[in-house]
Simulated assay, not measured.
Amino acid sequence: MGTAGDLASCLAREAEAVCRHYLSAGTRAGQYWVVGDTGNNKGRSLYVRLTGDRAGRWTDAATGQFGDLLDLIRESCGLIDFQDVADEARRYLSLPPAERETSSKTGPTNLPSPAPPSERARRLFAMGQPIDGTLADRYLRQRGILDGARYPALRFHPACYYRDLATGQMTPLPALLAAVTDAVGQLTGLHRTWLDRDGLGKAKVATPRRAIGGLLANAVRLQFPVDGPVPVMTAGEGLESVLSLAHVMPHMPMAAALSVNHLAALSLPPGTRRLYIAADADAAGRHGVDRLSRRAQALGILPLVLAPELGDYNEDLRQLGPERLTARLRDQLVSADAVALLPL
């Protein structure tokens, strides 16, 4: 029972019990356990198979995350090192503790309570450094985003652990970190983009982007005032798409919700009068835009949709250039906003 595969198989045989313990806010629906996310929030985005050959395998439809029950324990408990994940799985399964937990004088030591995902996100973000001159800065520049270093929400981690979901192998890789915050600026989660060590874009791994912590209703916020009202703002789905808009509108408050479902549920600050919604050119993106538009209207906020020429705004920035992107936005913004927020 020493390998990741052994532990995952043992957990899978008790899949429903594991879900009831770590995802108690969920419910059983047929052959699946359904819950909002790995942070144990209510909802139906994350589903765990409870029976058959794929028992214990889960997918979060909102974030694209997936894995086995070891991954679920890692995310729900806010653990960083794989050894800590294995220790927690052993504790749950009532297996003998790993050797490092045992003292010859005192016997097994008590493990500290696992940190919640939001605390894990805060710890990991605190380990990061400003991105200026780092691989993260180089990566964004390759994407046409030349001023990423000016955003406090972005940091660089030179050795952020990536876990291969198929093998369980943990590999330290450089990563771009993006802080997810709530409407009052409190960090609730973290988005990670793992990077190629040679500066050749994203790391060559199966899922180079993952998020942890409390994402629902929250976002990566750029250019928001420290305090005071936000009368006009823009919200979009992808981080790089929103960063591309911020590149040509450096004074517009921006929020990257990181997924279609999270965009639809985004919490809007009080005092907002106009909300520009940056749509991606696909059916899923339009669904998120429609849902957020209806919510904004119910709050007395005027929703206005911004549409890219290509697939998203990062494609527009890279392939069409900032001047053409600016010109297209000038045609879509309210005239007063275009004068105030776009360069002449």
Score class of each variant (00 low, 15 high):
72 L>K: 00
124 L>K: 01
298 A>D: 11
316 D>Y: 07
181 T>S: 15
93 L>P: 13
37 D>Q: 03
183 A>S: 14
216 L>T: 15
188 T>I: 10
285 G>F: 03
239 L>S: 03
308 P>N: 10
93 L>Y: 12
128 G>L: 07
102 T>G: 05
28 R>E: 12
48 V>T: 09
167 T>Y: 09
137 D>Q: 08
229 P>V: 06
191 H>S: 14
48 V>M: 11
8 A>Y: 07
49 R>G: 03
312 D>Q: 12
126 A>F: 00
130 P>C: 04
292 L>V: 11
293 S>F: 06
112 P>V: 10
237 E>V: 10
265 A>C: 14
157 H>V: 07
219 A>T: 08
203 A>M: 05
230 V>I: 13
208 P>W: 00
183 A>F: 01
255 A>H: 05
46 L>V: 11
185 G>P: 05
167 T>D: 08
197 R>W: 04
292 L>Q: 01
251 H>Y: 12
49 R>H: 06
340 A>P: 12
165 L>S: 14
229 P>E: 12
294 R>D: 12
228 G>I: 04
104 S>E: 14
236 G>C: 11
204 K>P: 08
56 G>H: 04
329 L>R: 02
30 G>N: 07
60 D>E: 12
71 D>I: 01
111 L>P: 14
287 H>I: 11
168 G>R: 02
84 D>Y: 00
26 G>M: 08
258 L>E: 01
17 A>N: 10
178 A>M: 03
5 G>I: 04
143 R>F: 14
165 L>W: 03
334 V>L: 12
233 M>I: 04
282 D>L: 06
131 I>R: 01
89 A>D: 09
211 A>C: 15
189 G>D: 01
212 I>D: 02
264 A>Y: 07
196 D>I: 04
319 Q>H: 02
81 D>V: 07
334 V>C: 06
194 W>N: 08
8 A>P: 04
61 A>S: 12
52 G>I: 07
135 L>Q: 10
184 V>Q: 12
329 L>C: 06
187 L>F: 01
301 I>M: 05
94 S>A: 15
156 F>A: 01
14 E>D: 12
169 Q>G: 05
1 M>V: 14
186 Q>H: 12
208 P>G: 04
189 G>V: 00
300 G>L: 02
266 L>V: 09
314 N>Y: 02
230 V>F: 07
338 A>D: 07
266 L>R: 11
94 S>H: 12
228 G>H: 05
3 T>N: 08
261 N>G: 15
169 Q>P: 00
208 P>I: 04
21 H>P: 01
39 G>N: 14
222 L>E: 11
297 Q>P: 00
211 A>E: 08
317 L>M: 03
202 K>L: 04
79 L>E: 03
291 R>Q: 14
193 T>G: 03
227 D>P: 01
324 R>I: 00
133 G>E: 07
